[in-house]
Amino acid sequence: MNWIEILTKTLEHIYLSFIPLLFACLIAIPLGIFLANHESLSNKFIGLVSAIQTIPSLALLGFMVPFFGIGTLPAMIALTLYSIFPVLQNTYTGIRDVDESLIEIGYGMGMTRKQILWMVQIPMGRNVIMAGVRMAAVHTLGIATIATYIGAGGLGDLIVRGIGMIDPVIIASGAVPTALLAIIVNRLLISLEYKLTPKRLRIIQKNNKKSGGFK
C-alpha cells in the first residue's frame, strides 16, 4: 500500500470538496436569509434548487464536460450545485422557525429589522443552519469520489482502480479515508458551531430544551 499516494489523494479530495462547500455556503446562506424574508418567492426558488438533487451525480458531472472540459473545475461546479440545497433549505428553516416571541421582544426593545436578523434570528437559527452545512459537507465528500470519472482526482481514483483490479485493499485505501474525512469534518463543524455560539445563548438554548420550548 502506497501511503504517500493515499495522503496525496486525500489532500486532493479535501481540496475538491472544501472549495465547493465554501462557495455553496457563500451562495446559500445569504439566499436562505433573503427567502426567509420573502416567503412568496421561497417555495418556487427552493423547489427549483431541490430539482438539482434529483439529477444523478454522474449525469450532472457529465453535463459539465461539454462546457468546462474535464478536470477539477467541472467537478467543483457540479459539487457546488449539489451542496447548495441542504444549506439553503436549513438556512431558510432556521431563520423562519425562530420563536416569534423573541422577535417581538427585539422590536419592543427598539431593534431594527437588520438588528433582529443579526442579533436574534441568525444566532437562534445557527444550529439548524450548521446542520445543513454538515449535511452538505458529508454529502460532498461522498460525491467527490465519482469525480474521478472526469479526471478530477481525489480518493475516487483509488476506489475506481481497486474496482478495476478487483482488489479490496486498494478499494479500502480510497473508501476508508473518505469515511474518516466525513467523520472528522462533521466533528470539526460541530465544534465550530459550539465555539461560534455565545455563552449566554448556549445557556438559553440549554434551558429551552429542558423546558420544551419558549412559552
Rank of each mutant, 00 (worst) to 15 (best):
I203M: 10
F68C: 03
I166E: 09
L41Y: 06
T80E: 10
S191Q: 13
M111K: 11
P74G: 06
I33Y: 06
S191C: 04
M111F: 08
M165Q: 15
G69F: 00
Y15R: 07
L155A: 02
F68M: 09
R187V: 10
L181K: 09
C25S: 09
L102Y: 00
I171Y: 10
D167V: 11
P30K: 01
V185Y: 01
F67G: 12
G174C: 05
G62K: 04
P20Y: 14
L81N: 07
L180D: 05
Q205S: 06
A59C: 14
P20Q: 02
N43Y: 14
K195N: 09
W118D: 13
K210G: 05
V133S: 05
M109R: 07
L35H: 00
T178Y: 05
Y92H: 11
K215E: 14
G151K: 08
I55V: 15
I170L: 06
L192A: 12
E39Y: 05
F63Q: 04
K44T: 15
Q115T: 11
L117H: 03
E193Q: 09
K199Y: 11
Y92G: 06
E193V: 05
T148L: 01
M130P: 02
I143F: 07
I150T: 00
M135K: 03
N43T: 12
R96S: 10
I84P: 00
A144H: 02
P123W: 08
I4D: 14
I52V: 11
Q53A: 14
H38V: 12
P20T: 12
A179C: 11
T140S: 12
A36P: 04
M111L: 15
Q89A: 15
Y194N: 06
L117I: 10
I122H: 05
M109S: 03
I6Y: 14
N2E: 06
I33V: 13
A172P: 04
T10R: 00
Y92S: 01
I84Q: 04
P123I: 09
A75D: 00
A172L: 11
L88W: 04
G156N: 02
L11S: 01
Q121R: 15
